[in-house]
């Protein structure tokens, strides 16, 4: 099997794991959301990589082109990006509310406050 052909997917895996590490290892919630965004972009890159065809042009019909890239992943990811920013905003709003209630956005400190109150 052509190993070079899989190089793109390995980049995706590296990016995804970088985002994943931030999500599970960081206490700060804003940092966690940044990590989640990195993860999300990795998934987008994965989809778009699948839609690439050698020698193909962008999927806009024209007389002089024969081969087009796969338009379906483009459609899915296009909407997913905008939905992603809307849901990120929802997460940020939740963080602002959490900071209102606990005066911190660090995960471990919130846990400590909960334990002392209980």
């Amino acid at each position: 099997m052509n190993v070079l052909g899989l190089f793109n997917y390995w980049i995706v895996v590296i990016l995804m794991m970088a985002g994943f590490y931030v999500v599970i290892a960081q206490e700060n919630m804003i940092k966690k959301l940044v990590g989640l965004n990195v993860f999300q972009v990795a998934v987008f890159v994965f989809y778009i990589s699948m839609s690439k065809i050698d020698g193909a042009t962008a999927p806009i019909l024209g007389d002089e082109f024969e081969v087009y890239a796969n338009p379906l992943p483009h459609v899915l990811i296009l909407t997913a990006i905008v939905v992603g920013v809307a849901t990120t905003a929802l997460g940020l709003a939740l963080i602002v509310r959490i900071r209102d209630a606990y005066d911190t956005v660090e995960d471990d400190e919130i846990q400590r406050i909960e334990e002392t109150e209980a």
């Binding site: 099997m1 052509n2 070079l4 052909g5 899989l6 190089f7 793109n8 997917y9 390995w10 895996v13 995804m16 794991m17 990589s49 699948m50 839609s51 690439k52 065809i53 050698d54 193909a56 081969v67 796969n70 379906l72 992943p73």
Partner: peptide
Amino acid sequence: LIYGTLDMPAYGDPEAPPN
């Protein structure tokens, strides 16, 4: 995940299942 990619179609393959 990298082990999983070994079964993936090569980059830019016009015959790949998604295409």
